[in-house]
Simulated assay, not measured.
Amino acid sequence: MLSLKLPKLFNIDQVPPVFHERGIICGYRHPQSSAIACVLSLFQMTNETLNIWTHLLPSWYFMWRFMATLYMVDFWNDSYSWPLLIYLSTSFIYPFASSCAHTFSSMSKNARHICYFLDYGAVNLFSLGSAIAYSAYTFPDMLVRTTFHHYFVSLAVLNTILSIGLSCYSRFLELQKPKLCKTLRILAFAYPYAWDTVPIIYRLFLSSEESSGEAANPYHQKHTVIAILACFLYAAHLPERLAPGRFDYIGHSHQLFHVCVILATHLQMEAIFLDMTLRKEWLLATSIPPSFSQTAGAVCLCIIFSIINIIYFSISLYQTPEPESQKKET
């Protein structure tokens, strides 16, 4: 009978500091794992296993939603649906990229950084996809065709480019300045989301008018609350910070963060579908028609600058000398 030998796991004091996770003591994979060993770890309980599966499975669900919508909607001849296409495509790319990053991040120190560079690029691409969908379908009636609406996507592109640069740069500060690293990374993800959410906050709390998209408001409310909870979990490292070693495999903050992010995306998707459907007649008569430059053009520009950022920071990894403390660890 054939037997499958799973990779050996290590404690925190057996792996280099760059692999350490706050409050996580056991379940680390070999810091120089092969690609095959990384794939095998999907079927072994490590401190990354649920991080992988909580994004891998939803990525296939979101891809199914994308394919089903692609079959039902005439994207080629209906420019009104272009923003939806952009949003749905980014919605399955970011969890898939995240699951790949967590899977292969133990191949080496530099591979770990590069994996997360790509992860950050996908997350920021999703942020831009959300901004494009919000601009097309969810803007409150009072803000449609305003200067803010006109420049909303353009500034979202700028936010995305700056965010990926800041988040990638933060990885160079992990060991020497961990607090600054965490602050910069949270800021890099929080401010594009805050910008994207401005029209939603205005619509939910500052607009007193009724509109045809009011049925989507409960979904927007739930999405906003869960997204804030996800941000808190990412920043606070709870519950593992209070009981190190107790949540190494199940229940630590990054797993809970992943679950909240996926649930928030699902609620956001439902809200966008409702807004797109219920407000279509009014938006086609009143709003600015989606253009190629504000949909596919914006995404292509973001992808180009994201690739440039990732290549630049990846090359910098190999040109930056290791601190003496790291050399001793190895």
Rank of each mutant, 00 (worst) to 15 (best):
G297H: 02
M67H: 04
L125F: 02
F139H: 00
N124E: 10
R171N: 12
Q294L: 12
K8R: 13
C231K: 08
W195T: 08
F117M: 06
K328E: 13
E209R: 13
V153D: 00
W60F: 15
I288M: 14
E281T: 15
F117Y: 08
G297E: 12
F172Y: 08
I262L: 10
I52R: 01
L50Y: 09
C300T: 15
W60H: 11
T320C: 07
H254L: 11
S99N: 11
L162A: 14
S316F: 06
S293Q: 11
T146I: 10
V157I: 14
S89T: 15
L162C: 11
S208Y: 01
I311Y: 02
Y312L: 12
L85R: 02
L267W: 00
M107R: 09
V153L: 04
L267Y: 06
Y87P: 04
I310V: 08
P239K: 00
M63D: 00
E329Q: 11
T160F: 02
T295A: 02
W76F: 14
C300D: 11
Q268C: 08
S106Q: 02
C302S: 15
L283Q: 04
T49A: 10
H254S: 12
Y134W: 05
L70Q: 08
S314R: 07
L70A: 12
H149M: 03
F62E: 05
P239F: 07
L256T: 08
W282A: 00
P323T: 10
P178C: 09
Y169F: 14
Y249M: 05
I114Y: 06
F117G: 01
A122V: 08
Y202S: 13
L40M: 15
Y151P: 03
S33K: 05
Q255R: 07
K177S: 14
L128H: 09
H254Q: 15
S325P: 00
S306F: 01
T265C: 11
I86T: 04
Q32W: 09
L229V: 06
Y61K: 05
K179A: 15
V299Q: 08
S127G: 10
L166N: 08
K280E: 01
V198K: 05
L128N: 08
I186E: 01
L6Q: 13
F19R: 04
W195E: 10
D78A: 07
L84D: 00
M269V: 10
H20I: 07
Q221K: 06
L256A: 07
K328D: 14
W82D: 04
H20Y: 05
S108N: 04
I228Y: 00
A190P: 02
F75W: 13
S314G: 12
H220E: 04
L274Q: 06
T183M: 07
D196G: 14
D119A: 02
G129S: 14
G165P: 04
M107W: 03
L143T: 03
I228K: 02
H237T: 13
T90V: 06
Q255E: 07
S130P: 02
R203W: 04
H266R: 11
K109N: 13
I262P: 04
K5L: 13
I25R: 09
R185E: 15
A37D: 11
H113V: 14
L278P: 02
L301R: 14
S135N: 12
M72R: 12
S98F: 00
N309V: 07
N124V: 10
A236C: 10
S91Y: 03
A230G: 10
P16M: 03
E174D: 15
K280N: 00
I164F: 04
S163F: 04
C302V: 12
F273C: 05
M67R: 06
C181K: 00
R22G: 12
